[in-house]
Design a protein around this nucleic acid. Structure first.
Lengths: 221, 221
DNA sequence: AAATCCCTTGCAGATTTCTGTAAGGGATTG
DNA sequence: CAATCCCTTACAGAAATCTGCAAGGGATTT
């Protein structure tokens, strides 16, 4: 899991449980929160200079103005500035915005790694998103109809067949026998084991229960 | 996947890419299209007589009249006639109708296996529906508010906790330890085993994989 | 031709799941 | 009080999952 994460969160956002939840659910050693874009950028700069750079930036989009002067006034500016000095930095945007077109633009132009909508399940989704991004995948809150990210997770026909059968309650032995009967190859139990285990890594699942839950939620199976 | 599928589609419907998309996405060996109910029924008859019956019928509801005389004038009549001669035939209805009550009636009286609304995502949904029906499940386009199939089995808070943790990839031993830590009782692995096994019966699940898939699909967890 | 890589398969073992039996405690009922 | 029921728990054994290691084959590269 990520060791060093920076959270830039408009302090008016209210969601101040984020840090605690993330600390508890994931095991991130260093997780700092900043309420202003400028301060967040400074932190990134210092960390980079000291050769202990942040690995992930989680940022809001909207930062409401207050009495403090500021240069960076939005999450997009923060992302641009951050990527300018640390191009490999991974970025998750966590905001209220739910316009697919705008979110799509974030992926296209800012190359963000995930977008999580602030909603009832926003925190759970954020945890998922971090895990996905850690495994070099993208993530978008399911309620966002972003047909751009539809093909992000490619499951070939063989994977699909196995997963659907597992979700239907078949054991791997039964799936193996079924494949042999249909003269489909590969069909050994061992290979099925391997295929599924590989999917654990790809989707950041701990076991088959977890994998099935994730894929069904994502509408993949 | 289905080997032999018949598509009855009002030719005014316009959606003539259906056949190509289905052929490409799924791997159906024989996929024929008919523009008239009567011709579709004839095809079913002939196939059955030659001992190579169709496995799935996908039909529209509304077939607009033109110069050709016809006996069957709607999808419902086609379904009734088809089922009369081949009761095991699976049926997916693909139409513009979006009245939940009418769609509900199709499930109740015609025992159709899936209903897909013709809409922007209709084709994608149709692909999903075919896969679901192939696995002996039903499917309804998500935009249809069909709270009919509510087998209201009560899940109490304790069941929910266990199920969510399982779906999150925790083992029963881990759940047991977590409960002990939180001083929640009961908390033994044995009791958790029993609780989950009881849910197998209630929800007709073969094992935990199956149960999780069902409950996530049903939006329970 | 040899080396290399990738995929498939078998096998072994540790862990987990699933099912059944049995024992004990608390609450209810006769 | 005794009988009964229900819930919790322990335990045991069979089946299934999960993770390694190793062997073999086919395709590609050197």
């Amino acid at each position: 899991m990520f060791k060093k994460v920076l959270l830039a969160e408009d302090f008016q956002g209210g969601n101040h449980g984020i840090v605690e939840v993330l600390r508890e659910k994931l095991h991130i050693e260093e997780l700092q929160e900043e309420l202003y874009c400028d301060k967040a950028l400074t932190r990134l700069k210092v960390a980079l200079k000291n050769h202990v750079p942040y690995e992930l930036l989680i940022t809001d989009l909207l930062f409401v103005a207050d009495h403090i002067d500021r240069k960076l006034t939005s999450g997009i500016e923060l992302i641009k500035a951050s990527r300018a000095l640390q191009p490999t930095l991974k970025v998750i945007v966590n905001s209220m915005e739910d316009n697919p077109v705008k979110i799509n633009t974030l992926f296209k132009e800012q190359k963000i790694n995930a977008y999580v909508c602030k909603s009832r399940h926003g925190l759970t989704e954020l945890v998922n998103a971090i895990q996905e991004v850690y495994h070099n995948r993208t993530f978008v809150s399911p309620q966002i109809n972003l047909n751009v990210a539809d093909n992000v997770f490619e499951l070939d026909g063989f994977d699909m067949m196995i997963l659907k059968d597992l979700a239907d309650g078949l054991t791997k032995k039964e799936i193996s026998e079924k494949l042999k009967q249909q003269k489909i190859t590969p069909n050994s139990e061992s290979t099925i084991d391997k295929k599924v285990s590989r999917l654990f890594d790809e989707f950041g699942a701990k076991n088959t229960h977890h994998l099935i839950a994730k894929l069904v939620r994502g509408g993949k199976i």
